[in-house]
């Protein structure tokens, strides 16, 4: 057989192994190379969707920020109890009448508290969340801290905060206070009320006395002996 045919055959075999090799590579490794769509169909249409970039505008946003002073149809424009936590010029001491206190709302508040608040304030509210722990580690180790300057989150059981009406707690969540940012844009208004309600419950739970427990339930409480008697 002429050498030419042998070389041709070998070349074809080697070339034929290239696509499987490339496929195997693509299937086993991550890459920042653009995704390949052999058939484009209308995968990428010349239109702008939520959070797309649009070079026409100076800030690059396809979604245009509303003109200053715009009020959304769904915005909470209530300037009173539900929107501001204020009743008759003073902090509200109850939930808004539209949002009655129910066990369901408290549970919702707990769930939301554990999403948005626990990281800093801790599960029980003592200002000992994991972000606090991490930030202190960073602050105590300037080599990796990159200028971390952390103020411990408030312990919500401090007397000053324990005495705050629920409307004031709602306001702090909404607009922020001291080093804490406002969460008004991040958490819907009804959930903020649920969290405020849960915070009040949490505060009460940490200084609860037997008198706070309904008589019918007192018998079913687990007994924890905090000061066990010395063994004789």
């Amino acid at each position: 057989m002429p050498k030419f045919f042998v070389y041709l055959g070998l070349t074809v075999i080697v070339l034929a192994m290239l696509p499987p090799a490339l496929i195997a590579r693509a299937r086993t490794r991550n890459t920042d190379a653009r995704r390949i769509h052999y058939i484009q169909d209308m995968d990428n249409q010349p239109k702008y969707r939520a959070q797309h970039a649009n070079p026409i505008f100076a800030d690059g946003r396809a979604m245009r920020p509303p003109v200053e002073g715009t009020i959304s149809r769904t915005a909470d424009v209530d300037a009173g109890h539900r929107g501001r936590g204020v009743v008759g010029g003073a902090w509200a001491t109850t939930l808004p009448p539209e949002l009655p206190m129910t066990m369901e709302r408290l549970e919702r508040g707990q769930e939301r508290y554990e999403i948005y608040c626990t990281m800093c304030h801790g599960v029980a509210g003592y200002g000992d969340g994991i972000i606090n722990k991490r930030a202190n580690e960073l602050m105590n180790n300037p080599a990796i801290g990159n200028g971390t300057a952390w103020v411990q989150p408030k312990n919500i059981h401090e007397p000053e905060i324990r005495e705050q009406p629920v409307g004031q707690i709602f306001n702090s969540i909404t607009n922020g206070i001291r080093n804490m940012s406002g969460y008004g844009a991040q958490i819907p208004v009804d959930d903020r009320w649920a969290i405020a309600a849960y915070v009040k419950a949490l505060q009460r739970s940490q200084s609860a006395r037997m008198e706070d427990v309904p008589p019918s339930r007192r018998g079913s409480l687990p007994v924890i002996d905090l000061m066990p008697a010395e063994e004789e």
Partner: peptide, 24 residues
């Protein structure tokens, strides 16, 4: 609540990063 799980605004990052790693 929405179809899209939005990428958070920079504000969300800054809830913590006004204080943490602020010079990084």
């Amino acid at each position: 609540r929405a179809a899209k799980a939005a990428i958070p605004p920079t504000q969300t990052c800054m809830n913590c990063h006004t204080q943490i790693h602020k010079d990084s």
